[in-house]
Simulated assay, not measured.
Amino acid sequence: MANNRKSKRKFWLWIGLAAVVIAAGLVVAVKASGNTTKFEPSQLAKAQRGDIARSVVATGKITPITQVIVKSKASGIVTKLDVTGEDDTVHG
C-alpha cells in the first residue's frame, strides 16, 4: 500500500512539474508576441560603414591621486647628477 502511495505522489509531482513548464512557456510566448513596437520612418536608417570622428571639449582641474613632496635635509648645489639611460650608460 505504501508503494502505491509513493507512485501516486510521483505521478502528481510529474503532473505539477509539467504544468509549471507549460505555464512558463505560455508566459514567454505571450510576452514575445505582445512586443509589437512600431517605429516612425524618421527613426529608421540604413546602417553604413565609416569612420566616426568625435571630440570632447571640457574645462576643469586635473589633480593627482597621491602627491609626493621630495625634500632634502641638506642644502647645497648639485654639481653632478649621474643618470642611467635606456642603454644603461651613465651620463653626467
Rank of each mutant, 00 (worst) to 15 (best):
M1K: 07
A2K: 04
N3Q: 08
N3W: 04
N3Y: 06
N4F: 13
N4C: 07
N4P: 02
R5N: 07
S7Q: 13
K8N: 12
R9I: 11
R9W: 11
R9L: 13
K10A: 12
K10I: 10
F11D: 10
W12Y: 13
W12L: 12
W12C: 08
W12E: 14
L13M: 03
W14Y: 09
I15F: 11
A18W: 03
A19C: 15
A19N: 10
I22V: 15
A23F: 05
A24Y: 08
L26S: 09
L26H: 02
V27G: 07
V28S: 10
V28T: 14
K31E: 13
S33H: 02
G34S: 14
N35F: 10
N35P: 00
N35Y: 07
N35K: 06
T37H: 11
T37C: 01
T37D: 11
K38F: 09
P41T: 08
P41S: 13
A45L: 07
K46S: 15
K46G: 06
A47M: 06
Q48Y: 04
R49G: 12
G50P: 00
G50N: 00
D51W: 02
R54V: 15
V56Y: 08
V57C: 00
A58M: 05
G60M: 00
K61C: 04
K61G: 04
T63H: 03
T63Q: 10
P64G: 09
I65M: 05
T66L: 08
T66D: 09
Q67N: 10
V68W: 05
I69A: 13
V70R: 06
K71F: 05
K73D: 14
S75Y: 03
I77K: 14
K80H: 04
K80G: 01
K80N: 12
L81T: 04
L81P: 02
D82H: 09
G85Q: 05
G85R: 04
G85I: 00
D87H: 00
D87Q: 01
D88Y: 10
